[in-house]
Amino acid sequence: MRTLILAERPFRDLRSRALLADLPRLLAGGLGGDAPLLLATSAPVAPPGFEVVAPDANPVALGIGRVVLTGAFQERPALEQALALAARAVAAGASFEVLRFGVERGAARRDPPAGVAVLEAARPLDLRDHHTANALLVWRVARMFRIDPYPERLGPPDPALLPLLPGGKLLGLSILGGPRMRAAWTARREELCAVLAPMQGWPVLPLPMEPVEGAMDDFAGSRAFLEDLLPGATLLLPELSDSAWRRRQMTPARMKSLVARCGVLITNQDLPAAYAVACRVPVIGLVLGTDRRAVNVLTQFANELPPGSVLLHKPAG
């Protein structure tokens, strides 16, 4: 019997890699023994420890005995497709687990997703954040859940990129890109320039998590934010503008080491903020537009934030 992993566009970005990469170790000893975990994806290849199957695969034909729903979902169609495949597997007798699971943006709409009832069969039902827990309550999922907050933050660091950095204090920056984000920070220029003033003269370390060619690429977003609000600052690791270099060199473990090297992190992303909390780096979370990623992290860890951390909401009025 085999284990099937259901995630939204698995391994598409560093956040997904951080959540999924160690599943072969975490799930070792379950159904399938040492066989690779089956990964439902339209991608042609999978990382070591995984084997590609079609997103609409037949669980019975694959001999699925265990299904694991995991990772952060942003898109409602992807969530509903995963729930439907889980339901078919459960109906055929497979066990069902939900681990490191989160919903945001369109996937977290108030109306229940089609197929949500299958979550009642999950043993365990482990969620990544309280925002997801609230979504399940709104959807009237009665199954008892547990919040295991941002477990990927606890992975080991890899210092391989640290020799590329200068000494002294560094400002970490991870800002989602796109015109909506730019409009949001432009409208708050005076407030944000005051926030950045104490870091004047610090070299800036971009910390991109998003897909390289994505519309919200946070390397492009961080660079634009810097040019608008802290002009003249030195941008470190210019190699990150090279998509091939970024794919080869940037891993979740290396990202954690880079975050730990910062004197302060400014971000509207979730994983860099979670790494900052784990590494005791002060984090300034920005609420830009409707994106709640930084909100979720800083409120989740409100009682254990490093000194100097703050969540900056859009001013009222």
Rank of each mutant, 00 (worst) to 15 (best):
M144T: 15
L265F: 13
G263W: 10
M1V: 11
A260M: 11
R292E: 13
A61G: 12
E51I: 08
L162H: 07
F219P: 01
A78V: 06
P198D: 10
P166A: 05
L31D: 11
A43S: 11
D217C: 15
P211T: 08
A220G: 07
V45S: 11
G115N: 01
F225P: 00
A46F: 03
L6S: 02
V259N: 04
A220K: 01
A224L: 12
V295L: 14
A253G: 05
F301A: 04
T290I: 11
A108D: 03
L311C: 10
A276M: 14
P156D: 10
A57P: 07
G308P: 10
A89S: 06
Q74D: 13
M255V: 09
P208N: 04
V53D: 01
A35N: 10
A133C: 08
M181F: 14
V264H: 13
L305H: 07
G201H: 03
V116Q: 05
M181C: 12
S309L: 13
A302S: 15
P203V: 09
V259S: 07
G33P: 07
P149E: 08
L19D: 04
R88L: 13
V297D: 04
L312Y: 11
M216N: 12
V295F: 14
V283N: 09
G63Q: 07
L127V: 08
G115C: 04
A274I: 09
A54H: 03
A220V: 14
R293S: 14
V60L: 10
F301M: 04
R88H: 08
R248E: 15
D148A: 11
P211N: 07
L165K: 04
S222V: 12
R261V: 11
G155A: 02
E213I: 13
P44H: 02
A57D: 06
A142V: 01
P272N: 09
K169V: 13
G221F: 05
A40C: 03
A61C: 03
E304V: 09
T290E: 15
G221Q: 02
D158N: 05
L4W: 01
K169Y: 07
V295P: 06
A28H: 05
L154H: 09
V98Y: 00
L85N: 00
P44T: 00
L192N: 02
G201R: 04
L265A: 10
A40G: 06
T41E: 03
V52D: 00
S42L: 11
Q81P: 05
V281M: 07
P208F: 02
G106Q: 14
L27N: 06
Q81M: 09
D13A: 09
V212S: 12
A94M: 05
L235Q: 08
G221P: 03
L173A: 08
A114C: 09
G214Q: 07
L237P: 00
P151Y: 07
L173K: 00
L229C: 02
G201L: 04
K314V: 15
P112D: 04
W245A: 06
A184R: 02
G167R: 12
G65L: 06
V60K: 05
G263Y: 09
V118C: 02
A78G: 07
H131E: 13
R12S: 14
R188Q: 15
A253I: 06
R25Q: 13
R9D: 15
V212E: 13
G102Y: 00
A40W: 07
A133Q: 09
